[in-house]
């Protein structure tokens, strides 16, 4: 059976169009964590924020460095959990501000 992981055109980070080979080149050049790879290739910086590629890159690091998956350093997880439009966030701030004014400055942004 064909070993699919040997295919140089396998896409590893879909948002940023990065192949497995591009990630491997980066690992071979000495970048040894997901965060370092992200900074030079943009892997994990797209709309999904690494939801797909994070663990795939971790697997590559794990096999290259012969370390267990749980020892691969994970990047920081940051808000928002999924993309949110700036308009929605801006309106939420204004509602919170007017709500706070109505409550005599004591209200939150609920």
């Amino acid at each position: 059976m064909e070993n699919r992981t040997d295919d140089k055109n396998t896409i590893l980070c879909r948002c940023e169009d990065l192949t497995r080979e591009a990630i491997l080149d980066c690992i071979r050049a000495g970048f040894c964590t997901i965060d370092e790879i992200k900074r030079v290739t943009r892997a994990g910086m797209g709309p999904c924020q690494g939801r797909t590629c994070r663990l795939l890159i971790a697997q590559e690091l794990s096999s290259y460095y012969h370390i267990p998956m749980e020892e691969v350093l994970m990047p920081t997880f940051r808000p928002p959990t999924r993309p949110v439009s700036m308009g929605v966030l801006a309106d939420a701030w204004k509602e919170g501000q007017s709500g706070a004014a109505e409550n005599g400055g004591k209200g939150g942004t609920a």
Binding site: M45, G46, P47, P80, S85, M86
Partner: peptide, 17 residues
């Protein structure tokens, strides 16, 4: 930002740090 550049309202935020 949306006050200064209203066109930004449509953009989706993917990450803050």
């Amino acid at each position: 930002m949306c006050e200064a550049l209203p066109v930004l309202r449509k953009l989706n935020v993917v990450r803050q740090w």
